[in-house]
Structures are given as structure tokens and as C-alpha cells.
């Protein structure tokens, strides 16, 4: 059995879980765990959510989709997750410009880890406050050759399109 993986990253609430859930054959939020220490008087509960989706391609090939955890404390996981990935998707909530800076930080950090192909999705394009993708391209400082795809993560065709565009970029990399 061969496995390949792709990473879905982006700021908190940009739609990573939704994106993976829309195409995954298993329930995504299965890795949510509560860690609590009973010995402490004030009960501390920490939730670590790491999304994990699966698409079976055929008898001996499986594609895994990993979502990056939301909190900044878990940034160290990015480096671990980015190892061996085929490519990555950076999700951005088009209606929340306050998250663009964080999106840039994530993008720049992943880009520095690996020269892997990636696409950026301008997600939640269905919302009335969504920014125009051409304005987002500048605000996110994307070079002209980087694909910025309008996306609605609840819509299967839209998610499929984003993954396909990423795979086309990977193919192009093989045929320079």
C-alpha cells in the first residue's frame, strides 16, 4: 500500500476542516483530544484538534489530507507535517482581511520549509463581504505564477477543483 499526503493550512476558521470534510471518506475531526490533569485543583482542559481526511484512490494508493492545528503554540507541527508532503493548500477566509497577515506568515513559513508546489484558495467566496480575489492576490503578496483559486469549501466541486489545480502544478513540476 502506497500513501501520499497533502497539507491543508491557513489561519483559524479559514475553512480547513470543512475543506477536508467535503472530500474525505472518513469523519475528519476524529483526532480531537482532551487532555486534562486531574491532580490539579483548577481543571485544565486543552483541546488539540488536528484534522485528518482520507481519499482511497485504488487498491494500493491512498491520499491523506492533514489540516494544521490552529493555535500558534503548535507551529512546531508545521515542520513535522510538511515533511514528505506532495503539496499544500493555503486556505484564506476572503471575508476576513484581519487574517491575511497570518495567512502570509503561514505561507512564507511553509514556503521556506520546502520547495513543494502549493495553491492558495480564496475561501468563503459565497459571503457578501468576500474580497475580490484580485485584491487578495496583492494583499497576500502572491507572485503572478501562484494559483489563487476562488473557493467555497462546502461545495464539493470547488474543493475538487482546488485539489486538481494543485495536482496539475505537481505534474508541471515533473515536466519542466
Amino acid at each position: 500500500m502506497q500513501t501520499v499526503k497533502m497539507v491543508v493550512t491557513g489561519p483559524f476558521s479559514s475553512g480547513k476542516t470543512q475543506f477536508i470534510q467535503t472530500v474525505s471518506e472518513i469523519d475528519v475531526v476524529a483526532t480531537e483530544r482532551k487532555i486534562s490533569s486531574e491532580s490539579e485543583r483548577i481543571k485544565e482542559t486543552t483541546t488539540v484538534a488536528m484534522d485528518f481526511g482520507r481519499i482511497t484512490v485504488d487498491d494500493d494508493l491512498v491520499l491523506y489530507l492533514f489540516g494544521t492545528p490552529g493555535q500558534k503554540r503548535f507551529d512546531f507541527m508545521w515542520e513535522i507535517l510538511s515533511e514528505g508532503m506532495l503539496g499544500f493548500v493555503v486556505m484564506v477566509d476572503s471575508s476576513r482581511p484581519e487574517t491575511f497577515r497570518e495567512a502570509r506568515r503561514i505561507l512564507e513559513t511553509f514556503r521556506a520549509y520546502a520547495p513543494t508546489p502549493y495553491v492558495v484558495t480564496a475561501n468563503k467566496q459565497d459571503l457578501p463581504d468576500a474580497w475580490d480575489p484580485s485584491d487578495m492576490r496583492i494583499a497576500l503578496r502572491l507572485a503572478p505564477e501562484v494559483k489563487l483559486l476562488p473557493c467555497v469549501a462546502t461545495d464539493k466541486e470547488s474543493v475538487k477543483n482546488s485539489l486538481l489545480e494543485l495536482l496539475y502544478s505537481i505534474l508541471e513540476r515533473m515536466d519542466p
Binding site: 472530500v23 481519499i55 484512490v57 464539493k156 485539489l163 495536482l167
Partner: peptide, 19 residues
């Protein structure tokens, strides 16, 4: 090999198109 890699990516593409 590049050919094997291309064929693997093409299998992924075919599968995702069919979702």
C-alpha cells in the same frame, strides 16, 4: 522514476475528478 511518479499523480487526478 519520473514515469512512475507521473502515473501516480495521474491516478490521483482521475480519482479526484470522479468524486
Amino acid at each position: 522514476s519520473t514515469d512512475d511518479q507521473k502515473s501516480l499523480v495521474n491516478r490521483l487526478i482521475t480519482r479526484i475528478r470522479s468524486l
